[in-house]
C-alpha cells in the first residue's frame, strides 16, 4: 500500500506542476499567475522530495518560493501600480506557430530519450548532507565559489540597474 500511495503522489505532483505551469501561461489575472507559479515551484519541491533529495527540496522552497516568487510579486506590484484599476488583465497573442514549437520540442526530447527507458530504475537511495558538503567544498569548490561570485555580481547589478540615476 505504501508504494501505491507513493505512485499516486507522483501523479498528483505532476498534475499540480502542470496546472501551475498552465496557469502561468494562460491566466488573465496577474495574481492568479503568481499563485500558479507558486504552486508550480512547490510541486517541483515535492518532486525533489520524491527523488529522496530533502536538502534540495528545502533549498528550492527557501530560495524559489520564499525569494524568487516574492521578487516577482514585488515586481508585479511596482510595475502595475501605474495602471488604473487594482488588478489589470494580462493578455497573450496565441498563435499556432508557438504551439507547434512547444509541442515540437516535447516530441523531440521525448523521442531522443526514448531509448533510455530500459535503463531507468526507480528511486535509488539518498545521500546525506555531509556528502553534499564534502562535494561542494571539495571537488565542486570552483563551482561553489563561482556561484558565490555570481550572486555578488547579480547583487551589484541589481543595485545599479534599479537604483536610479542619482549615483
Amino acid at each position: 500500500m505504501n508504494d501505491t500511495i507513493v505512485q499516486i503522489m507522483w501523479w498528483v505532483l505532476a498534475a499540480g506542476a502542470l496546472a501551475g505551469a498552465v496557469t502561468v501561461v494562460f491566466s488573465r489575472d496577474v495574481l492568479r499567475m503568481a499563485l500558479g507559479l507558486g504552486g508550480f515551484l512547490v510541486a517541483l519541491a515535492g518532486f525533489y522530495m520524491y527523488y529522496a533529495l530533502p536538502f534540495l527540496a528545502t533549498v528550492q522552497v527557501f530560495v524559489y518560493v520564499g525569494g524568487v516568487l516574492v521578487l516577482i510579486l514585488f515586481g508585479i506590484m511596482l510595475v502595475h501600480r501605474s495602471e488604473g484599476d487594482a488588478r489589470p488583465g494580462l493578455s497573450s497573442r496565441h498563435d499556432p506557430g508557438s504551439a507547434a514549437v512547444a509541442v515540437g520540442i516535447l516530441a523531440l526530447v521525448t523521442s531522443m530519450l526514448w531509448p533510455l527507458r530500459d535503463v531507468m530504475t526507480e528511486r535509488p537511495a539518498s545521500a546525506g548532507t555531509k556528502a553534499i558538503a564534502d562535494l561542494l567544498l571539495g571537488d565542486l569548490l570552483p563551482h561553489f565559489e563561482a556561484a558565490g561570485a555570481l550572486l555578488l555580481i547579480a547583487l551589484v547589478a541589481v543595485i545599479v540597474i534599479a537604483g536610479g540615476d542619482d549615483r
Binding site: P54, G66, V70, L73
Partner: peptide, 19 residues
C-alpha cells in the same frame, strides 16, 4: 535530518500570504 533548515525555510512562506 534537515530539520533546522526546514524550520528556517518553511515559515518564510508566510511572506507570500502577507503580500
Amino acid at each position: 535530518s534537515i530539520g533546522i533548515l526546514f524550520f528556517l525555510a518553511v515559515p518564510s512562506l508566510s511572506v507570500l500570504g502577507i503580500l
